[in-house]
């Protein structure tokens, strides 16, 4: 497999209630670097091992949640191709001018059937302090806090997950690695989409309300890093949801916790390598406890109800 077309989750723009508290959370606790603050107050951050300029954008607002998730694509020709395919399929596609976010080239933007806005872009400046490339050390500066390596994926909640699945598979070239289905009807309740070698780059859960954010996930190195992250959560009284534990789906190891505005975050490690010829892994809803929280073997109430 050669990865082309959609390369990876590039950045996510999240609404926060209090910027000062949020910066402490994302910079000092999760360990991201603040890259810049825009004239409109948006704050741009990145993880230490990311080459691109930024991956997390915080926008202060009186309502928490997700503004948009953006994927980086191989080149400008891909943007044109996706734009045409989206329009042919009946989607309205908005053009976002280069520079709307600092260092980011032109974007195309559409709203998926689950009510989430997704942007695609091909160009973004390289970070001033990205990973080294000449006789590279593992990092340029000592990582802080939970030592997040990169923005990894999002889990989003909305109604028409079949519709969003179709767009991502048929237009954007994603594969579905795993699904959770209703035992009787076979209706898809949750699905895990990948554009890469990762077990998931985007996950969706069927939900009564559209456009909701379940979590923004950050990669950390290993199980021990999760222990260290959990220590930080207790020491700084961060609102923890569940974990450290493991997901049956993806097999990733995880802690869910909340930012100061109630947006759920995840620190995540491991997970299998996916190839597009892998057979689909299927979970029945009756086994969903093990699928989501492999050790607890049951969902907590918050998993299905607490979103922003």
């Amino acid at each position: 497999m050669a990865i082309n077309g959609v390369l990876r989750p590039g950045f996510v723009q999240v609404r926060v209630l209090d910027m000062a508290e949020s910066i402490i959370h994302y910079r000092d606790r999760i360990g991201l670097d603040v890259v810049s603050t825009g004239d409109d107050g948006r704050v741009y951050l990145k993880a230490y091992d990311e080459f691109d300029r930024h991956s997390i954008v915080l926008r202060e607002c009186d309502e928490a949640g997700l503004d948009m998730m953006a994927f980086k694509v191989s080149n400008e020709a891909c943007l044109d191709e996706y734009e045409e395919k989206l329009r042919t399929d009946g989607f309205e596609v908005a053009a976002i001018a280069a520079g709307e976010q600092p260092g980011v080239g032109r974007r195309i933007s559409f709203v998926a059937p689950t009510g989430h806005r997704f942007d695609l872009y091909a160009e973004i400046e390289l970070a001033a302090n990205g990973p080294m490339t000449n006789n590279p050390d593992v990092c340029q500066q000592d990582p802080r806090g939970m030592k997040a390596i990169r923005f990894d994926h999002c889990l989003l909640y909305g109604g028409d997950v079949d519709g969003t699945k179709k767009v991502f598979e048929e237009i954007l070239g994603f594969s579905t690695s795993e699904i959770v289905v209703d035992d009787d009807s076979g209706m898809i309740i949750a699905l895990f989409l990948t554009c890469s070698n990762k077990a998931h780059d985007l996950a969706l859960v069927r939900h009564e309300e559209d456009g909701k954010l379940h979590h923004v996930s950050f990669l950390v190195e290993d199980w021990t890093s999760l222990r260290d992250a959990a220590d930080i959560m207790t020491r700084y009284d961060i609102s923890r949801d569940i974990g450290p534990t493991r997901h049956g789906i993806t097999r990733g190891q995880t802690i869910y916790f909340f930012d100061p505005s109630g947006n759920r975050n995840e620190v995540f490690s491991g997970g299998y390598a996916f190839y597009p010829d892998n057979p689909l892994r299927v979970w029945k809803a009756s086994s969903v406890g093990k699928a989501i929280f492999y050790y607890e073997r049951e969902l907590n109430d918050r998993f299905m109800t607490v979103v922003t």
Binding site: L17, A64, G65, S239, D241, F258, D259, P260, S261, G262, N263, R264, D301, R302, T305, V306, V307, T308
Partner: peptide, 12 residues
Amino acid sequence: VPVGCRQGGCGV
């Protein structure tokens, strides 16, 4: 009273 995000964001 359900415990949700504890941060004023989720409303439960």
